[in-house]
């Protein structure tokens, strides 16, 4: 059974594209057939994050306008057996696509892929409408900042109105040292305030900057790589306790519970 997921946020610059690329990679590592679709028409970015920018021939708008077949626009990630990208168009604007056309495309992709990940543009206008049209579920990316969480709340409301379920939250760019000194909201704080299920938290880490610079996926053994792998497992319905990123006394000494599920064991057990 295939699933269409939209990665969205409201606010820009919180890490949607990086999350989409690395979630795709994490799922592909688990032998899933995955396609990531860049729906940000006019501001093409996902291809760059994935390091596939030199291989683009056709794009999303070409498929929709019938200039090419879906197969022709798909770019295979050479690092994985079954990870594909549909790049966005750089020289067009959002009005080139309608929600109905996006739904038709995602339905076509469902036939062949286990997971279809839609990287949504920032904002709540037409680009957002297009991206969510064909989605079964949503992953709302936010950072532990007032502005990003406020926008996430707005997005959650809009997704609920569109009957997209489930809507899960990913908290990105957590800085454990700041949470510890009380200068950053914690995962629990955000969960408490928003009242949305959190499917994962990813620390702010230099590894992400390096991987993005190089256009490669995160090492699955790096800390953010592990965090994203955990999200990919939770997406598949596994119950994985949340990682604790606190840096004092041994890195993964304390593992805290995501909900009230059992949460014992050490890092290697995750």
């Amino acid at each position: 059974m295939s699933e269409v997921m939209v990665v969205t946020s409201g606010k820009g610059g919180v890490g949607k594209t990086t999350m989409s690329a690395n979630l795709g990679a994490a799922l592909a590592r688990q032998k899933k057939k995955v396609v990531v679709v860049d729906t940000d028409i006019g501001l093409r970015n996902l291809d760059v994050v994935m390091g596939l920018e030199n291989q683009i021939v056709y794009n999303l708008v070409d498929i929709i306008e019938g200039t090419c077949r879906v197969r022709q626009a798909l770019i295979k990630d050479p690092r994985f057996d079954d990870l594909y990208l549909i790049p966005s168009a750089q020289t067009r604007d959002k009005s080139a696509v309608t929600p109905e056309q996006m739904r038709m495309l995602t339905d076509e992709l469902r036939m062949e892929y286990d997971y279809i990940i839609l990287d949504c543009p920032a904002g709540i206008e037409q680009g957002f409408r297009n991206a969510i049209a064909g989605a079964d579920r949503a992953l709302v990316v936010t950072t532990p900042e007032v502005s990003a969480i406020r926008d996430a709340d707005r997005i959650v409301g809009l997704l609920e109105k569109e009957c997209i379920k489930p809507v899960n939250l990913i908290i990105n760019r957590i800085r454990p040292e700041l949470v510890e000194t009380g200068d950053m909201m914690s995962v629990e704080d955000v969960m408490d305030i928003l009242g949305v299920d959190i499917i994962g938290a990813v620390p702010d880490d230099v590894e992400i900057v390096i991987a993005t610079n190089k256009g490669i996926p995160l090492d699955e053994n790096s800390i953010p790589g592990q965090a994203i792998k955990n999200i990919s497992l939770r997406i598949q319905g596994e119950e994985i306790p949340m990682m604790n990123f606190s840096k004092d006394k041994g890195f993964f000494k304390k593992i805290f519970k995501m909900s009230n599920k059992r949460a014992q064991g050490d890092f290697n057990g995750i």
């Binding site: 532990p144 007032v146 950053m184 909201m185 704080d189 305030i193």
Partner: peptide
């Protein structure tokens, strides 16, 4: 008050 709490 810590800035995290103020944000909250």
């Amino acid at each position: 008050k810590k800035s995290g709490d103020i944000a909250k």
